[in-house]
Design a protein around this nucleic acid. Sequence first.
RNA 1: GCGGGUGUAGUGUAGCCUGGUAUCACUCAAGGUUGCCAAUCUUGGAACCCGGGUUCAAAUCCCGGCACCCGCACCA
Length: 533
Amino acid sequence: MDFQKVIAVATRRGIFQPAYEAYGGLAGFMDYGPVGVRMRRRILEVWRKHYVIDAGCLELDGALIGPESLFQASGHLGEFDDALVDCKNCGKQFRADHLVKNGEEMSRKELSNAITETNCPGCSEELSEMSSFNLMFSTGVGAGKGAPGYLRPETAQSIFLAFPWLLRQNRGKLPMAGAQIGRSFRNEISPRQGPLRMREFTQMEVEHFFLPTDEPKLSNELRKITINLLAANGNETNSTVGEAFDSGGISSSLVACHLARAQHFLITIGVPVNKLRFRQHGSNEMAHYSSDCWDGEINTSLGWIETVGVAHRGDYDLSAHGNASSKEFRVAVPGTEKEIEVWMPDVGKLGKEFKGDAKIILEAIKDIDLEPGVSVNVNGKSIELSAEYMSLKTERRSEMVYPNVVEPSFGLDRILYCLLESSWKSDGEREWISLPQETSPYDLLVAPLMTKDGLDEKAQEILKSAVNVGIDAYYDEAGSIGRRYARADEIGIFFSMTIDHQTLEDGTVTLRERDSKNQKRISIENAINKVRR
RNA sequence: GCGGGUGUAGUGUAGCCUGGUAUCACUCAAGGUUGCCAAUCUUGGAACCCGGGUUCAAAUCCCGGCACCCGCACCA
């Protein structure tokens, strides 16, 4: 199925549509309808099962709007805030800092001046005024103009900031992973292709923290998972994750773990294994902080679509926040705890002797190793501190280090699109969505063969008992039974249960399986047990 | 953001050149009939992307905007 067809089916069957259509539409925003919301919830359920329940990630739901200082530290204000110019003649657009020598180190003003003396690299004509483009949506927090704030461009930062908090919840133990499902916002220059490039989108992200000296090993279970890899050097391989790691194709054991997990998750929700590959970023494509990065890509009618990224981010984020904020983001390296003797200043004596200058002295010795005879500069005078102003104390200290992090990051909207395209089946007679039950929008269609002789009442009764045990059921009594099967198939309802006259006599129903169309006559109780997930 | 194309019921479309009550199919709803894979009959609902201009009259011609598609650029 191609892109246009997916969009048409999605609109017709209540999966998604462009948002704000009544007002002419707004590019980059989508609304999900009744069926789409169910599919999203189901995919998220599987994701949570994989990462939160099974892998034991600590789940977080962070705030959407963040202060300017956060995005300065994370690098988003610098990196995302591009100065653009375009050519007045040929209309081509460029990043201003790429056109000027040393442009990346210039201030906005310097850059603006330099640009007026620069011409279009394409046609040598005059360039337009420089305009600023920030990929983040900005807003004001509080009354009046308010303090500047931004909608988060990724969910990851919430987890990084929550790291010390989460670590306490984990009673200080590493490795530890935080997980988050949530919306992110990017003011894309040209959003295209509906759910594939949105300005508001849903991410599922994991930040897996570990000591650089103690990277989690690849478990035997994950080793066995088979995976398609496309290395940065162009080599394509199909092997187990274990083999790929042993041969050095994947350099980090935790990256290998997460490639395996991502593969397993995508297969579980219904992505065909032959349409899935993991492509390694080349060094020029990689973000500046990343040492190894793989994109999980799904093959569609539009080519390979990136739906997952697994990146080794080193300690870039935690050290950035550690340096810029007032919080400690480092952890003690176990086993490095040592007793050491340190000289501590005797504040009382210093105060009595130096009065007002004591404050300056304390400030000056804060960042140096204190020892007898050290001299400090006070108002231009050098003062030597003898042992009487300090005492030797024994302390236990550990080596402190920023944990490293491996981040698998999933784009829900893209995954949903790819699933729709790959699970769309057609055999000439009927068209249906062939998703596994886990991600089908409904478990069961309940349909009375006729709406008379009490069949509909019986069906309603069965519907109620199915819903009571957690089955997501859809009731339909309109039109011929064939038409109802077809309607159910098109939104991917996994089972259909038909109630006929025999049901009233012996309590059996026919249970139909969507993909095979096979029907079995079984008792109501057995049918419900079979449908139950 | 640039260039090209497109915009008509829920979906897919005809009509646009050459201005004059908007076509067809499916879908949807109600009723009849039928009763296990989109059967059938009757009836009904539902659209010219938005704004301005030209004209007696605009889906149709012109201008602007918005959205979508393709290409370029952008996509830490």
